[in-house]
Design a protein around this nucleic acid. Sequence first.
RNA 1: CGGGGCGUAGCUCAGUAUGGUUAGAGUACUUGCUUUGGGAGCAAGGGGCCGGAGGUUCGAGUCCUCUCGCCCCGACCA
Length: 567
Amino acid sequence: MRFSRAYIPTTKESPKDAQLPSHIYLSRAGFVTQVASGLYNFLPLGKRVLRKIENIINEEMSACGALEVDLSFVTPAELWQESGRIEKFGKELLRFRDRKDNLFVLGPTHEEMMVSIVRNRVTSYKQLPLNVYQVKTKFRDEARPRFGLMRAREFVMKDGYSFHASTEDLDREFDAMEAAYKRILERLGLTFRIVEADSGAIGGTGSKELMVLAQSGEDTLAVCDTCEYGANVEAARRAPRTIIPEAPKADFMKFKTPNVKSIDDLSTFFHVDPYYTLKAVVMRAVYTEGSEPVCFFIRGCDELQEVKARNSVGAIDLVDISEAELNEIGLVPGFMGPLDQDKIRFVMDNDTRNAAAMICGANEVDYHFVGVDLSVMGEVAFADLVAVQEGDGCPHCGGKFLHTKGIEVGHIFKLGTVYSAPLKAEFLDENGRSQPFIMGTYGMGVSRLVAAVIEQHHDEKGCIWTHATTPYMVNVMVSNIKEEAHLAYAESLYISLGQNGIETILDDRKERFGFKMSDAELIGFPFTVIVGKEMENNQVQIMVRKTGEMITVSTDDVMKKLQELIG
RNA sequence: CGGGGCGUAGCUCAGUAUGGUUAGAGUACUUGCUUUGGGAGCAAGGGGCCGGAGGUUCGAGUCCUCUCGCCCCGACCA
């Protein structure tokens, strides 16, 4: 491509709306433009990057035997009614009617459509397993689109779905997809972590997220400093504590604790480690129908993880509850405990099971119980409720957890029969019995990956594309196009690079040196060959974008040197 | 969906508290000359329904009402 004939509208100033590096640089360097909230146009450079990523995905999927399809973007609303998701998705589903007044939605994901194309067509276990996928535009009418391509309403996603006759076969495919996704991200040149995730309302037996590590990530991950284990904090589990503080010595009794309400107050008052206190967190659990207050009890040294708490009671949401409401129910904020507490439902953290020497509220103003042995509690609900903290132990190797931020670029699920059962997508097994398909689903955010590459690879000058994602590998820049000999040499180099299969752009614009250099750095081509002053010695320079290094080579060796650098 | 902020040239923004010539700057764009290793200089130009609709007024970018859009924080996010 000749720069003079390309459409690469670079700007010196960033759009005022842009906050993240990826948004700023992709806009400034002319990869994308914003159309409306959460809607973006891909300009020629952006489209090239998008296609590079798609190609790598296609190659890896093909290597796994997955089959590419292309389902219609506009989907009949009936399918969504059948699966029950038309209510669940709510306003995120963009709905509209055609001229005959039929209701349609723009596909936000394609489980329903994918199930519909195999049901009644794949009817025997002999036709299984099957793994089909597409790379396609999706639309979710997000309440708050933000961060440029990172959280757009219209975006490109690779969504794959597998169908199996047994859970064992699903497990095998799930592992194969995890491996394939790992290869894709490695080829793209990204630093990432595969972490355990919360499966949430979707259910199923397991899910993993692929997280590109970057400061701007929206998710917090707990990652082990020693082994490969990592998890979204929403789902992270920790090893049992190895260092247990010395237990206070006290017989069971009710103790007057005037105005001692917080965990801090309590541990100061009794001179005990917060480990031996019991923290009560009351929230209103909202269900599909109705709501109720629920109390979660955890050790005083721990923090409640809301997603875990929500899952423990099967709620769709947890909302804060006011002190007035608590009083109304007959609870005493600051002095709540699980003993003789029958006013509301409560759940206790696993780590409080059989805990002894505890101090907890007596459900009476200004009183706590001390020396409590929680093993006397009998049949109560226990669940993992606590948020993993930095420094907590890894459950696999005993290493220490660190927290880091990640961009979710992929999510793989074991769905089981969550969709196939309600949609009645069934096959006949070896015994001639009808069974719903066992399914897996594998998503990857293609347009989000474009942004993720830049979040992870940029500097104060602009983008730094990885070799697999760059729109052009080499930029041949003519310092001064009035120097005819320089221009002629650059043209010939441009042609021979192309003949050697190296994607090249020729910056033949009638601009000054500094202007063109700044553009090269902003756009972020891995290598820029500067054809200029050194030509008097039959030499050119290669600027390595990533390091800023300038390599001077003779015009005879430049091809060889570039091939060596590209690797 | 709750809270906050912003809509003036392609882009980034002044001007709006206190209404008053023909609405400004920088940048980008066009033309000419000069310049050619870090977004150059001089000169001359083109470019605006001041987000939209109503209103107040002799007069509205500026005041009032209503709307639409965009951004940020939160809730939400297979």
